[in-house]
Amino acid sequence: MNYTLRINGETHQVESEPEVPLLWILRDVLGLTGTKFGCGVAACGACTVHVDGRAMRTCTLPVSAVADKHIATIEGPPDVRLQALQAAWIRHQVPQCGYCQSGMLMAAAALLAERAQPSDADIDRAITNICRCGTYQRVRRAIHDAAGKLA
């Protein structure tokens, strides 16, 4: 099948079986490696991107489900929320190994789109990504800080 994918404002034509997860189209077909593979079963969040503004785990999201939708990855031109989060991530020195951080940032940006000033409980609910380096405390602080800066 041929799919038209709109990723980070650009249009890509991709030849693929319908069930191939978006993650592998991004990484192995288009070379957009900022989105990571961590588990393949929607359990870790490393593969999170935005589909029409919502955070989606791409390791279990078939390409056929996202044709003609707006896909945003960590490499794309950041919207104002992602930009604020990236700046806060640097201020709070959040990343360690960094492998989970693309997914963390995309999940956090989607949270801010839904709730401009999230509470700790909102963060607990929305950020279910796994970080093996244990950066959670700094992630939380940086989300609050970015939200404050955007207010």
């Binding site: 490696t33 900022g34 593979f37 950041p78 990236q86 640097i90 959040v94 960094g98 951080q101 693309s102």
Partner: peptide, 27 residues
């Protein structure tokens, strides 16, 4: 002092082993 590796880890440009891509890579 701020870490030298952090900026590349917030915009997806950091290169991990699994991100190595050469022309014609097979998996």
């Amino acid at each position: 002092l701020p870490r030298t590796d952090v900026p590349a880890k917030v915009d997806g440009s950091a290169q991990f082993g699994a991100d190595v891509r050469n022309a014609g890579t097979v998996y």
